[in-house]
Amino acid sequence: MNDNKTELQKMLDGELYVAGDQQLVDMRDNARVLLSRYNQMMAEPLEKKNEVLKKLLGKCSTIDIQPPFFCDYGTHIIAGENFFMNFNCVILDCALVTIGNNVMCGPYVQIYTAYHPLAAEERIKGPELAAPITIGDNVWLGGGAIICPGVTIGSNTTIGAGSVVTKDIPAGVFAAGNPCRVIRTI
Rank of each mutant, 00 (worst) to 15 (best):
M85Y: 01
M27G: 01
V33R: 14
G177F: 02
V103C: 07
A161G: 13
T98H: 13
G74L: 11
G80E: 06
Q110T: 14
T62C: 09
C71F: 09
E121K: 15
I99F: 01
P117Q: 09
F174N: 10
A119F: 04
E128C: 09
L24A: 04
V103T: 10
E122C: 04
K48C: 01
A176Y: 09
M11D: 00
G74T: 10
L141P: 05
L35N: 08
G80P: 11
I78P: 00
T62F: 07
G80W: 10
L57G: 03
E44S: 15
E47H: 08
W140Y: 13
V139D: 11
K54G: 05
N4L: 12
F70Q: 13
I133D: 03
G150E: 07
M104Y: 04
D137S: 11
N86H: 11
E51C: 00
I133V: 15
G20P: 00
I65L: 07
V25P: 08
V173W: 01
G143P: 06
V103Q: 08
L57P: 04
I135S: 02
V109M: 11
D168N: 15
V173P: 07
Q9L: 00
L129A: 03
V182K: 03
I77R: 06
Q22A: 14
L8S: 07
L118K: 05
E81K: 15
L35V: 13
T98D: 10
N156A: 12
V103W: 01
C148E: 07
L141K: 06
N86C: 13
P45L: 09
E7W: 03
P132A: 10
L57W: 03
H76I: 00
Q9T: 00
M1S: 03
N178P: 05
I159M: 04
T152C: 14
T75Q: 15
I183P: 01
K55E: 15
C60W: 02
S163P: 09
N178G: 06
M104R: 12
N50R: 14
E81N: 14
E81S: 12
C180W: 04
A175N: 07
R123W: 10
G162Y: 04
I153S: 01
P149A: 08
E44M: 13
P170W: 03
P132E: 04
T75L: 12
V173T: 02
D93K: 05
R123C: 12
M11W: 02
I133W: 06
G20I: 03
G20Y: 08
Y108P: 03
E44G: 04
L24C: 07
C180V: 07
A161E: 03
G143T: 14
D168C: 01
A95P: 06
F174Y: 15
A119C: 06
V182P: 10
R37L: 12
V52E: 07
K54C: 04
N156I: 11
G20N: 15
K48Y: 05
E44P: 00
P149G: 08
A176M: 14
R32I: 04
G100P: 02
G14H: 08
A171Y: 05
P170K: 05
S61R: 15
G80V: 05
G144I: 09
T62N: 15
L56G: 10
V139L: 12
N156T: 12
Q22G: 01
L92Y: 01
F174G: 00
G162R: 03
R37S: 10
M42V: 09
E51D: 12
Y73W: 06
E128S: 11
A114P: 11
D29Y: 03
P117K: 05
R37C: 02
G143Y: 08
Y112L: 14
Y17T: 01
L96M: 14
N101L: 02
I135E: 02
